[in-house]
Design a protein around this nucleic acid. Sequence first.
DNA 1: GAATCGTGGAC
DNA 2: TGTCCAAGATT
Length: 354
Amino acid sequence: MNSIPTSSPLLDWYDKHARSLPWRTSPEDRRLGVIPDAYQVWLSEVMLQQTTVATVKDYYVKFLSLWPKVEDLAGASDEDVMKAWAGLGYYSRARNLKKCAEMVAQELGGRFPETEDGLRALPGIGPYTAAAISAIAFNRKAAVVDGNVERVLSRLYEITTPLPDSKPDIRTAMEQLTPEDRPGDFAQAVMDLGATICTPKRPACVLCPWVDPCTARASGLADSLPRKAPKKAKPTRHGVAFVAIRQSDNAVLLRRRPPKGLLGGMSEVPGSIWSEDFDFTTALQHAPFPANWQRRTGIVKHTFTHFHLEVTVFRGLLSDSLAVLDESWWSSGDDLAGEALPTIMRKIVTAGLD
DNA sequence: GAATCGTGGAC
DNA sequence: TGTCCAAGATT
């Protein structure tokens, strides 16, 4: 055992075991000369940033159906894009997606740049996504480094330095490992290997095409790599939210969040800020208007990237339609279902309507 | 360099 | 129930 790692065994494995995904050009089709659509590659890669394949699939199909070409997406309204993205998370991706589509359609003649530098200049495209698009859509040699690659190469070369300090070494290794011939398939092969064989826990080393050259496998360290710097604890923030219900049609009062920051540009029900030392004695001061607000039993709990949230929900039943306040609107039925409501807000609305 | 920025599934 | 973490980018 302990040969020098090369791309060949992995590419051979990929030819047999590549996952079939809606945005992927299979190795067979590639051999037949099928050219991937850069728009489709870009769309999928942005959606896949920190998001699982299973979650992305339906959103990808929906977006491609709504906006088949980059010009279609560029011509869509910001609101429609945010509505279609609702629930997928990391909403700055959706804002940047729209900006990027506009730049490609209006300034680049509808064609995505082929180089990493050219791609990197577009909003929402960082080092990973630029390399992925360049390699997958344009068959250019680029070191595609994502979380899978970090894990697979940390084990293959037994890199014991904790992430993120080990990133430079991992990048260098990926640059040297990536073949001139099939850089896109190779990148996807490493990612498929990481997703199905070289998994974070209990890797299936006996099935791995790189088992021979894998030094972590030889030393028994595979399942303990990569090492990572310890994470910070999440504090818990509290707040209140108000579900105003128009009794005639069960419409709910909504408003827009500020364009940047947490859930930026998305819709919400009126409520307080969320803080660690929220003062519940002033809860009703955050209501959109005076009413017979009734506290719902149970608290809506949600966890964001860097804090836990516990929201106390109030419901108010309105017999007459009040004059709608600044930048607010009523929404019911199919309209409500299609609103740009992030998951936390859907939980709150559900709690209010129960 | 460290923080910010969502969500759902696996264990 | 809590933690991990998934095809990261931006500031």
